[in-house]
Structure formats: C-alpha cells, structure tokens
Simulated scan of single mutants.
Amino acid sequence: MGRKMNYGKDYKYIPATSIASGSGIEVLPDLYQFTIQIVNIHMVGYPNKEFVLIDAGMPMSADHIINAVDERFGKNSRPKAIILTHGHFDHVGALIELINRWNVPVYAHEKEIPYLTGEKSYPVPDATVEGGLVAKMSPIFPNEPIDLGKNIEVLPSDGTVPNLPEFKWIHTPGHSPGQVALFREKDRALIAADAFVTVKQEYLYKVLTQEHEISGPPRYLTTDWKAAKSSVEILAKLNPSVAVTGHGLPMAGEQLAESLNKLILHFDEIAKPEYGKYVN
C-alpha cells in the first residue's frame, strides 16, 4: 500500500478572487474553461461524453470542480485522467481530494515530478519583483510541495497525451522546470498553461476585473526568464487559432496572433520585470 498523499504544511485557502470566479466558457465544443478564484482549469471532451481534466485549481476548491464537472458531463462523472501543466499551488490545489474521489491517473512532465512527490519545494515566491499587489501578496501562497506518492505518472516521452490522442504536449519551462502546454494540430487549439497568460497576474485590480491583455508568465513565481521567453517563441511558431491560459480569458484569431507577436518583440518590456531576485 502506498504512502498517504499530503499537501504541504503551508496549504491553506487563499483569499483572492476575480469577477470570473465560478463561471465557465465553452471555448470550443470540446474545450471548456472554468475559473476558480484567480486560476483556470480546463476540460477537454464533449458534454456528457468522456473527458480529461487539465489542472486542479486553488486550495480547497474540490467541491467547485466536482460541481462544474457534474454540470457539464453529467452527475457523478469523472475524467479519464488529470493532466497537470505544472505543480504550483494554484494548479494542484484540489488534487488529492479529486484523486480520492475519482481514482483516476494523473500525469505530469518528468521534471515536475520532484515537486509532486514531496522531494523538492519550488523557489520561494518573489514579493520584491516589479508588479502590483498580487506580487506583494505572494509570500502567503503555499510553497511546500504536494506529495502524491505513487499517484503521479510521467507523461509519455513521445509527446503524446494519455486519453487525448489528438493533442501533443510541449515542454515550456521558465515558469516552472517541467511546465507543459498542450496543442492540437487539426484546429490549432492551444492550452498554454502559464507560459503566457491573458491578464497581468501581478496586479490585483487587473486580476479582479480580468482585464484582457497578453502577458508573460506570472512574475512572482517565474525563475528562469530566458527559458520563459523561449517557451513563448515555441508556442507562437505553432500559429495557434485559439489559446486558453492558466489566468485570464481565452484569446483567438487575429487578436491572438498580433498579441503573441507583440509579446515576442517586446518580451522584456511586457513580461520580464525590471527588478526582482530571479530577474538575472
């Protein structure tokens, strides 16, 4: 019998939210975004059919996720699998409760595994980084690693995504060592995780109002800015038609193309902070 799963000792509810919290958007017929406080989870699959859950939201949000799943896929539905884009607290916050309820496999990139098995903590969030009030709040965010024991599996090395045969995973480090994005060639749908986001996540007012603008990864948790820029460039080359991100509203079409091009050309001004302990 495997060891008991545990959150870190600093696991707690975070009192931060946005106007989008508790609402969902059908981005495509089989791609649904649901917002929990200040982060998005995604469900891939047609309503009332089989589906896969991408990420697991904020701490203590399991009931919200279960209710959203039941509403879209039917009472007592469960995903075929949970894919983690990375292991930061706002992407694994309800994971243990969901595993216990659904008993489904969970997958992440091999470089993210130590942060999901209690072996390593992420670098401490940088409250000194250039940015607004959310950045200043970041020291209260849980930082100790979740321990999933044997309830986490490594994504296949060939880029395939379990139970999502049309998608490929793409390694997008910078925000975390093993962050991945998911891309579907046939309609160029991109699940970008936090490689780039569509709200200035450092600024409380913009988070609260979900002001729509492209930005780089959240500054207070990003430790490798060279890799972060490279990851954005890799995703832009895919020429996505629609993108959903870990924070902010979906973006599509000409607005997405122009915004990604602008982000690449002016990454240091738009995304990279002028100062902070991880900037250099």
Rank of each mutant, 00 (worst) to 15 (best):
K168C: 10
K200E: 13
E202N: 08
D194V: 03
I152E: 00
I146P: 01
L155S: 07
I191T: 05
P165F: 10
K168Y: 05
I170E: 00
A181S: 15
V197T: 13
T172V: 13
K186R: 13
F196I: 07
R184D: 07
D147I: 04
L164H: 11
I170A: 00
Q179H: 13
P173D: 04
P165W: 06
V180D: 01
E202S: 15
L204P: 02
S157R: 15
D158H: 04
Y203E: 09
E202Y: 02
F141D: 10
G174Q: 07
I152K: 00
Q179P: 03
D187S: 14
N143R: 15
A193C: 07
H171I: 04
E166L: 15
R184Y: 14
L190W: 12
D187I: 13
K150L: 10
G174R: 05
E202G: 14
K168M: 08
F183K: 04
P173V: 05
V180K: 01
G174P: 07
A181D: 06
H175M: 06
G174S: 10
E166H: 14
N163Q: 10
L182E: 07
D158F: 06
P177I: 03
G149D: 01
L148F: 11
Y203D: 14
W169Q: 05
K186G: 08
F196W: 01
I140E: 06
D147W: 09
P156Q: 13
V154I: 15
N151T: 05
T160P: 02
N163D: 14
I170F: 01
L190A: 12
P162G: 11
G178N: 04
E185V: 10
T172H: 05
F141A: 09
P156V: 11
P173Y: 12
L164N: 09
P145S: 07
R184F: 10
V199W: 00
I140L: 12
F183D: 08
A192I: 09
A193S: 15
V180E: 02
P142K: 06
D187G: 11
Y203H: 11
G178M: 00
F141Y: 14
Y205R: 11
K168Q: 15
A193Y: 02
Y205Q: 11
H175I: 02
E185P: 13
I140K: 06
G174H: 11
G178I: 01
S176G: 08
P156A: 09
H175R: 07
V180S: 03
W169R: 00
R188L: 05
I140C: 05
A193P: 06
V161F: 03
I140Y: 13
L148C: 10
L182T: 08
P162S: 09
K200W: 06
A189M: 09
D194Y: 00
F183G: 02
P145H: 08
N151C: 08
V180A: 03
H175L: 04
Q179T: 11
D158N: 15
R188E: 12
L190H: 09
P173Q: 10
N163Y: 14
P145Q: 04
